[in-house]
């Protein structure tokens, strides 16, 4: 499935200052029975977001009208656990285009990139500054510039650079996915297979 292009994003952010947010929190296993990619956003962080009667819990950030936006800012080691891509679908389905943290689990990072969601890995110190900026002004905008690999808060002047694999960057900027690439080298793969046998 071709992915959405990602060039720059300027948006307020939703803060989730919890460490080790695992894939079972992002989307509990009981919601993995679907056979399509749609609809997972409704159950994003389900057990933190709703009580057992399905009523929104007032103390969870997604239910707090103070916060909104297309950027999720989370504590370190985000996305650990399962390889379920449903976690990325839930985050994208809810409307987030980027997740910012000081550390990501590997598989989650790949899954996010394969769905056009940008994982932005920053230092612990910058993450603390972001949480502080959002606490002071919940509507403060965070700017993510993929071309220049920089994340900033224009209103306060803080910024930091981030790393991304150059190939993945190109994919996101242009909306390509890996299957497009792999399919373009089909003959090369077939030749390699033949030689390896």
């Amino acid at each position: 499935m071709p992915i959405d292009k990602f060039v720059t994003l300027e948006s307020p952010a939703v803060p989730l200052p919890i460490e080790n947010v695992d894939t079972d929190q992002i989307i509990p296993a009981r919601f993995l029975k679907a056979t399509t990619r749609e609809g997972f956003g409704d159950n994003l962080f389900c057990d933190w977001r709703y009580d057992k009667n399905g009523q929104p819990k007032a103390d969870f950030v997604l239910n707090d009208p103070t916060y909104s936006g297309q950027i999720l800012v989370a504590g370190k080691n985000f996305g650990s656990g399962s390889s379920r891509e449903h976690a990325a679908w839930a985050i994208g389905g809810y409307g987030f285009k980027a997740v910012v943290s000081s550390f990501f689990a590997d598989i989650f990072k790949n899954n996010a990139l394969n769905n056009g969601i940008l994982p932005v890995q920053i230092s612990d110190a910058f993450l603390a500054q972001l949480f502080e900026a959002i606490e002071k002004d919940p509507k403060v905008k965070i700017k993510i510039d993929l071309e220049n690999q920089s994340i900033s808060v224009p209103a306060t002047g803080i910024s930091e650079d981030f790393d991304i694999n150059p190939y993945k960057k190109k994919c996101l900027l242009n909306g390509y996915d890996d299957i497009d690439y792999l399919f373009s080298i089909k003959d090369e793969i077939a030749a390699w297979e033949k030689a390896a046998q």
Partner: peptide, 22 residues
């Protein structure tokens, strides 16, 4: 190693995966 569903699709389509060397 474990992979996401987009990667399952890649393997089904081409028997290959795009992976950065850990």
């Amino acid at each position: 190693f474990g992979i996401g569903t987009s990667e399952v699709e890649m393997v089904l389509a081409t028997q290959c995966l795009m992976q950065s060397r850990p």
